[in-house]
């Protein structure tokens, strides 16, 4: 791996971790899981600017490190399922459909929420998580996904020349 690539991926991981931290500091009156998904800006950026393998690597390192620093074992399982499901859906969508990165980000955000609610259901065995939380999360997740997708799209475009080679 070239130094320029390593440096760039490390920067993106650090940025994603900072986004995670900032997001965790926003006080919420909302149900858990309703988030902007700021770290996804960095993940979408790496996916489009560098590649699939690198996006998985950055995402995995980001999730493990932020959970160790600010979370718990449960939050690790929880974000790992959401994060990996979301990224996998985005990878598939980017490769096999003609949609832009805003759509990819929206669908990725949705699957992040779906994955997390599934883990929460697995842990609590309470069906109301699907009938009460999930509809709220799908609406907020779509709106957040649009914002994140637009921002990531701008970053992907503006930083074209920054791509390591």
């Amino acid at each position: 791996m070239k130094t320029s690539k390593l440096t760039m991926l490390s920067l993106c991981t650090a940025l994603a971790m900072i986004f995670s931290f900032v997001e965790s500091q926003i006080p919420t009156m909302l149900p858990p899981g309703m988030k902007l998904g700021l770290p996804n800006i960095a993940i979408v950026f790496v996916l489009y600017r560098v590649g699939v393998k690198e996006a998985y690597a950055v995402n995995l390192v980001r999730i493990v490190l932020t959970s160790l620093l600010f979370g718990s074992v449960l939050s690790l399982a929880y974000s790992l399922v959401g994060g990996m499901l979301s990224l996998t859906v985005m990878v598939v969508m980017k490769r096999f459909t003609p949609f832009s990165c805003v759509s990819v980000s929206v669908v990725g955000g949705l699957f992040h929420n779906i994955g997390q609610v599934c883990v929460a259901y697995f842990v609590t065995d309470t069906a109301q998580l699907f009938t009460y939380y999930l509809p709220m999360l799908l609406v907020s997740g779509t709106v957040a996904g649009i914002v994140i997708g637009l921002v990531a799209g701008i970053a992907v475009k503006r930083l074209e020349k920054w791509t390591p080679r």
């Binding site: 858990p32 718990s72 449960l74 842990v123 609590t124 309470t126 109301q128 998580l129 009460y132």
Partner: peptide, 8 residues
């Protein structure tokens, strides 16, 4: 149907 959840 409204639910409060404490995952931990």
């Amino acid at each position: 149907n409204e639910t409060i959840t404490c995952l931990p």
